[in-house]
Design a protein around this nucleic acid. Sequence first.
RNA 1: GGGUCGUUAGCUCAGGUGGUUAGAGCGCAUCCCUGAUAAGGAUGAGGUCCCUGGUUCGAGUCCAGGACGACCCA
Length: 1070
Amino acid sequence: MSRFEKADTTYSFPEMEERILEFWEREDVFAKSLVRPAPNGNYVFYEGPPTANALPHPGHVLTRVIKDLFPRYKTMRGYHVARKAGWDTHGLPVEIEVEKELGFTSKDDIEKFGIAEFNRRCLDSVRRYEKEWRRISNRIGFWLNYEEAYFTYTNEYLETVWWLLRQIWDKGLIYEGHKIVPYCYRCGTPLSSHEVAQNYKDTKDPSIYIKFRIKSDMRRFGTELAEGKTYFLVWTTTPWTLLSNVALAVNPKAEYVAVFHAGEHLILARDLLEATGLDEEPVVASMRGADLESIKYEPLYTFIPVEKPAHYVVTGGFVTLEDGTGIVHIAPAFGEDDYQVGIENDLPFVCAVDERGNIVPEVTDWAGKNMKDADSEILNDLKERGLLFRSATYTHAYPFCWRCDSPLMYYAFPSWFIRTTSVRDELLANNEQINWVPEHIGTGRFGQWLEGVVDWALSRNRYWGTPLPIWQCASCGELHCIGSYVELQELAGFEADDLYDQEKFNPHRPFVDSLTWKCAECGGEMRRVPHVIDCWFDSGAMPFAQHHYPFEHKDKIDSGAQFPADFISEAVDQTRGWFYTLHAIATMVKDSPAYKNCLVLGLIQDEKGHKMSKSTGNVADPWKVIDRQGADAFRWYFLSATAPWVGTRYSETAVVNSLQKFLIPLWNVYSFFVIYANIDDFDPASDAKPWSEREQLDRWIRIKYNRLVQSVIENLDKYRVTEAARSIENFLDLLSNWYVRRTRRRFWQGEKNDSKWNGYHTLYEILVGFSRLISPFTPFLAEQLHQKLVRPFYPDAPISVHLSDYPEPDASVSEPDLEEGMDAALRVVKLGHAARNLSKIKVRQPLRGIILVTNDRQLPAVLEEYCGIIKDELNIKSVDWAEDAKDYVDVQIKPNFALLGPRLGRQTREVQQLLASSPATELVAQLSETGHVVLNTSEGEVTLDPQDLDIRIIEKEGTAAQRDGNLLLVLDLEITPELREEGLSREFINRVQNLRKTLQLDYEQRIEVKFSVGEPVRSAVLKHADTIAAETLAIDFGEDADLADEQPNVYTAAIEALEVLIKLVPVKGA
RNA sequence: GGGUCGUUAGCUCAGGUGGUUAGAGCGCAUCCCUGAUAAGGAUGAGGUCCCUGGUUCGAGUCCAGGACGACCCA
């Protein structure tokens, strides 16, 4: 009868995991973990909502592994971790996905198709991907509360977003302005930077130099310039923007000159004289850019009247001297820099081109023409007026629309902004309260971003998103921001039975666009502005919106129960995404950080170190590895391989490595335990001896285990995942390769004695504790151990390992002598194996002994109790300490640099040389006689005390010796006839054991053995017959000279080129 | 163009506050162990610690400049 379920060594981890998933589902384990007693209160985790517009890739799996680790850990440590799932459902990425499906190329297609239906398709798409995300999240054991997941498109969520916007509105932080965006006039849509980056092409544009005639008095720069024939020379590649020119910009620090050319004076940067071919002309004046500020010039065109002062020189650091003339023409409608300059100098906003790329009617000469087509006509006009200095063509990289290949234009769109610049100080102050892991993100990437924060461009000219809740009066321009559905209903007076059922009331476009009311000021019609908002605002609103705050669950936020978060974690690309929007909204609305600890993950790269992306097609499918190696292997790889914030090169081989390093050895230890516990019918619930009565090795592994618990908790509390995982690996190595290895013999003993029972109890307790310790890391294998080791014996135990308490370190577990001694023994054994290797004498051959040499006076006493283990492990008869070290070692003396360096300074090097050139033995003799060493240096005598010297022992040439620091081990290589016979008998045992294994005999199967072999093996085997019989479980053992290899049950083997015949017959019923 | 991180063995990565023998795992070679082992152990080969300069008695480590790579932002 077996108490423990057999643990095959040919085991499929993925299959085991599938069974455990079923078990979790059947028993509803996650739900049960949520209602566990939580004496330590809440640990708040925010799930950063994935945008459900594509399949998850390995990077997402990493994020989800980390996001699972801490909630599991904290739950087991007595916290309640609510962890609502969430999905980011709005936004351009989703729209593009649907546009692709429907084969759309422009916004017109969407409007023809119908916004309502288009939005419905967006929702369908999101739902579809959400299923895939749930499937993989579930498979890797990422526990989240999907039952109560938040979706950013729901009425509840959206209402909170409106409420938040209203709070920000009430603070006067929302305004309308212009945003320069890359824009395709054919598709009628702005493009995101990602789209722009897809289609840069080399293109030919006009390269023209134009003269702007100066109106101001230039006399102060020289009398020659007073005559009115002085011009600014300006370069541009977009003649059509000249229609919208309102200023010229110079670099205030650069040097400008006026040159005389063809009867006129031209002003440009000195550095660009040669590039414009004016370097031969006489320079009549020179000035700083700053001197030119405010100088007025005649506008080239006056089709559009300006309502503010314009057409003068401004200064700006962005003006470079790399090409052109060092004087830049400014058209605020058509460039980011230009727009900023316009704001800073309060310039008028002139826009001579409409949204379709055509010249506006006011420009009577070219009204209705496409801007590009107007280029040449404008050129001709300037030429006729004598204002064109030179024209050529110019080849440069320029972005084109990735859909229709039209050249993009940078166009100033009316947009709504949040004035985040006015809360910059608060953003920075709240950032101080966040613990960033790694630290540099907080001060670097994130902190610097906050310092240079710009106003948040909030609106988007799109369809599938949270509508901007701002209504404007068509007559007087009065604005109103809506903060709740009730308010909207009162104003707009629509019918809805249920404001939270989208069948009855859908706050999305197009319905919301139809709601209007009379302006309170003038009686005009209040209409909604047409925009939706940036979907990043949605995700940043999740701390509040996931609870429909403040309309419901007001207390969760106000009491601090679910705000701010204790922990969030996403990849580094979220720095300016979710990390920022969470922070900005929380700061503006609550003047608080939104999260206390933020673990920033590196990006997962492909095998060549490049970011995985859909467009390059190097995205690995995580399912392959999960199906083949299992989720635990995947998880362990991410958690142990490298620091999570360092980008990791991902490959299946790497996952296999981590499987072999951790999961397989652990499985083997478990399987070993099960084999012997079943043979001996071990009952874990039986009485265990107190630790004080157990063996050294048992107490030692418990000490190491206790240290492990301490280390894992310390590291996890600091969010140091890799360190925690590595300490687990190191412990497993000690458990498997020292504790189990050294304990095996105890389990092999035939009778059931205390020593054996102590071993079972110890290994059992360690394995059970270990399973809890690793359960946040590898939840499946941990569960397997719990189910097989604990549940059958302790009916009252939690039904899942994830419902048990996390191990706590036990301060009373400490035996410094034991720990030091065993560690030293390990060190000696390592040296012994190394020495045996050098001597090429295998461990099976017993040797007389080892001689240890050290100048550590404590070591012999420390090691005394552990000589038995050393002898056994190294297969030697004695461990001796050398009385006279000189026979085995030489001495090497070096300065103790850490002490002598600061004291001697420059002399250090000379002392080093003197020590190296003096015979070490003499120095040692001097030291033992006088207590110090005196050296004659060029700068006088130097006296060195023992602590100033680093005395090392080194092995003499030609001995089978190995050294580790100041411990040297010498192997006695002489093999006496007795040792030789013993060695041969062990060879024989090995052959029989190999046979047992080949024949797949049960571990306890008794056998009958006959053998036939020549000398010298024969007499060795006969001499040690009793031992051989005992070791191989042979109840009948003897020589049979008549064996022949054709006979049944007779096998051949070889010992040192000598053929051995062995007849092996299992004994029935024994 | 600005910012952040990185560059250490064939590969993947460790190397608080500077201290003279730079480590681990994988891979390779040789050997050992195996009555838990798809395992494990040992030894070996394999390093201009990206380059240049500086600080220092002493630099993989600190400073400056540069090269290359990745990412973010213009």
